[in-house]
Write a protein that binds this DNA or RNA. Structure first.
Lengths: 137, 137
DNA sequence: ATTAAAAATGTAATGAGTACAAACTTGTAA
DNA sequence: TTACAAGTTTGTACTCATTACATTTTTAAT
């Protein structure tokens, strides 16, 4: 499914800016920050505003097109892969790795409730020192 | 175990300010923010500085005395309960609920590694609308 | 008592994210 | 084709949680 189709399916009009942000998210599985996306798209769309990037990402998150990762307390990161998975955050280099989710998978078909709360998002992450940083010691 | 003993055990000198912050965390299981802690302790310790609260919380987190919860992208919350558990964050009222952890429990005795990464912290949280907010609809 | 290390404090700065109003685009219907 | 309204983008100014840093205070050891 193309980025355009994905947006149309969610009832989001596929403007040049929105397509560029979604394309970036789908083709760069690096969990970028809003700023990184903005800087990367500046060449392609010279008039791009940072506010547009923030607005677009919020729109995506609200419509289930992207995930907002609030692991790093400094920056929010975004993920174009909305399937159920966990993350590993390296305290030394700040890199975010994809990891398998460990735990009961919530039923995707209908919304799950837990202790009376309606669960809309499930997040799991680990923190520590990554493989790559450990090798440097 | 008293707050004082807990600090001594971790090699943290139990100053008035540190004891007050830890006491607050242990007696208020509300996952407070640094600002909430600061405001609550201002009466008790009139000379208290916000910087001290931040320094103290960072010290606690680095020594495993408290957890830093980065669920809400605006504010960091802190938890004096460092046992393995999950959280539920209500998107409407912002309340944080304790929840049981679902998934493989990491071995607490020795440090766990996952795909070569050294895991020091395990986090799990849910987002949605809480029981209390649902009743108001 | 002296002195050095540790801790606390206050102020100023940082910077990610947001509010908001103006400008621009798009589609639609006269 | 024009006119209009709704939706979208943009730039600027602002907020405010957190940090940097220099100064002051406290603690503990000699």
């Amino acid at each position: 499914m193309t980025a355009r189709e994905k947006l149309l399916e969610c009832g989001i009009s596929p403007s040049v800016q929105r397509l560029a942000v979604l394309d970036y998210l789908l083709n760069h599985r690096t969990h970028p920050t809003a700023d990184e996306i903005y800087l990367a798209l500046c060449d392609e769309i010279p008039t791009l505003s940072k506010t547009t990037v923030y607005n677009t990402l919020k729109l995506f998150v609200d419509n289930g097109v992207a995930l907002m990762l609030t692991i790093n307390e400094r920056n929010v990161h975004f993920d174009g892969d909305v399937s159920l998975h966990a993350h590993f955050y390296c305290k030394r280099c700040g890199h975010l790795y994809d990891m398998p989710y460990s735990g009961k998978h919530p039923s995707k078909s209908r919304m799950q409730t837990m202790e009376g709360h309606t669960v809309e998002e499930v997040h799991q992450y680990y923190k520590g020192i990554c493989r790559s940083c450990l090798q440097e010691d």
